[in-house]
Nucleic acid binder design. Structure first.
Lengths: 136, 136
DNA sequence: CTTGACCTTCCCACCATGGGAACCTCTATA
DNA sequence: TATAGAGGTTCCCATGGTGGGAAGGTCAAG
């Protein structure tokens, strides 16, 4: 299987497959006589694992850890749960942060007429002149 | 006012102030005879505006737009509201995405014993072997 | 045999930020 | 007044993932 075929079989671009190989996330595959990378089912399986982990927001580093645990038959599932739990916490922190932004902006947009008058509470707030309380 | 004083007056690092100048987000200030940047109240005001916009998650590009609108006395507040509204929508999309990840991971972590047995539904799911439905 | 699709490596760009080197300038103190 | 140290200047490099593209080799179909 070519890198292009492996790419469409996994949804990981050829560019990224080479990149993952270059940083050591995945192992270098065999090559044909003409230096083409050759992938088999195992490699595709690994790539799908990586794809899924990345889609779930794990960093490449975390993905690497998970991949190691996946391939370690003797791993304790507690280790995996720890990685997942830490990741959930990080996601929730990020979500709370974004929600705070949305809250502030929604409040401001609500106060902003949005018409053609030049008075704008959003800009006033950004400029630190407005009476709007941000509370954080 | 030195760049360092401007930095502590606004919370924008000296490094970033120079960067914002280099990309044209803010204007180049006057210099002393010894080539030090000199900032006044106006510049500090602009930097605070930028800081606040960045804190609210606006990209530098969006910040630039808002800054232009702020400095344009004849702008319509509707334009500002549009930028803010689009930004809120983008934030909410991002939030929904992250919440989807949390949901999936929470479900998996809940199913994962987290003990010392090697069976792990999280890894099974990442590998695409598990019965867990992701539904997105 | 040519054409076009695909592979290879290598470099560059993004966005926003930080680190650090090498060098210059100001201020306070011995 | 000499010197130390704090802070300014420019310039380059790194991050994390990803894409774009050039230059050149390879394969398959017409």
């Amino acid at each position: 299987m070519n890198i292009g075929e492996a790419s469409s079989a996994t949804g990981v671009s050829a560019k990224m497959i080479r990149y993952y190989e270059s940083i050591g996330l995945i192992r270098a595959p065999l090559r044909t006589g003409s230096n083409y990378r050759v992938y088999g089912e195992d490699e595709v399986h690994v790539l799908r694992f990586v794809k899924r982990a990345r889609t779930l927001g794990f960093s490449v580093d975390e993905t690497s850890t998970l991949l190691g645990l996946w391939q370690d038959k003797s791993r304790a599932s507690g280790e995996v749960k720890d990685v997942a739990t830490a990741h959930i916490a990080a996601l929730e922190t990020k979500i709370a942060e974004l929600q705070g932004m949305v809250k502030t902006l929604t409040h401001l947009a609500h106060c902003c007429g949005g018409d053609n008058r030049p008075d704008c509470p959003i800009l006033d707030d950004l400029a630190g002149e407005g009476p709007a309380k941000q509370g954080h």
